[in-house]
Simulated scan of single mutants.
Amino acid sequence: MANFARFITVDFSQFDWLNRIDADVLLDVGDLSPDLLTVPGKDAQRVLSEVVRLVLDLPRNSTPLVVWTKGDSELLIHSDQTRIQFSSGVITVTVSAECEEHGKLSIPVPIGVGTKQSPSGLVMSTFEDLEGPEELILAWRDAIQAFAWESVLEVASVFCAEVGNDKRGLPLVPGAIAAAPNKMLVQPVARFSLMPGV
């Protein structure tokens, strides 16, 4: 998971709901931050608008368009038109795509996540079939779903990094992602280490 937080230009001081941990709170490996983040949908969209460019490896001042290529097939992605919505237990990322055969399309990717009452950690699932022309979905489903999934994960990661650092000085990461109507729920945690004793 990349640390995109340092590349985001959103002014997080405007988010009065964002509680940062005190400097004297030293979270050890796997410890939860004191507060579950309840991110309003509009604030998640603001961060998503910047995160998608990073997920797609688009330089900051470049065009928001990217062309995916697979064999003889091409799909134009309008990154600046990516949208995120929340309902109970579901985060939907709508990807704006365009191709010669079908013109411009909005492809919703519903991602099942937990709820506050029924948390599922970072377990997320989506449908095998997406809404759209069958041949386009068959060709591009995996790429579209991966883009939507990574975007959700990185939005949550950016907010967690804003909450603070663990006792090793590393930014907090999501330990759970859930959804409520028009809200993203994220539990920041101190990251685990893959190296014993670190």
Rank of each mutant, 00 (worst) to 15 (best):
Q14N: 14
L136K: 05
S96Y: 10
I91T: 09
F86A: 12
L122A: 08
L56N: 10
L153C: 10
F159E: 11
V189L: 01
L153Q: 04
S151H: 02
N19D: 05
E50A: 02
L48D: 15
T63N: 14
P171V: 08
E128I: 12
G164F: 09
V109M: 04
I21W: 04
C160Q: 13
I107N: 15
P64N: 11
D166T: 04
L56R: 13
I21E: 01
N19S: 06
N182G: 06
E154F: 13
G112A: 07
L37T: 14
L75H: 02
S157C: 02
V52C: 02
L130N: 07
K183I: 08
L36Q: 11
Q81A: 14
V113T: 02
V90L: 09
P196R: 11
H78S: 06
A5E: 15
A143R: 14
G41H: 11
A5L: 10
A23R: 08
I21Q: 13
F147M: 14
V93D: 05
R20S: 12
V67M: 13
D80H: 06
R191G: 04
P188G: 04
Q85W: 10
W68K: 14
S96G: 15
F12P: 10
V10E: 09
G71D: 11
L54P: 11
E134I: 10
Q14E: 14
V109E: 04
R60G: 09
S87K: 01
G71M: 08
D22F: 04
G103V: 06
L185Q: 00
T63F: 08
A180P: 06
M184C: 05
D43P: 09
L56G: 09
E50F: 00
T9L: 01
K104T: 15
P59L: 13
S118K: 04
L58R: 12
A139T: 15
D35C: 10
S125H: 11
S62R: 03
D16A: 14
S157A: 15
D28L: 07
G71P: 06
T126P: 07
K167T: 11
E134K: 09
V155A: 02
V186Y: 00
I107S: 05
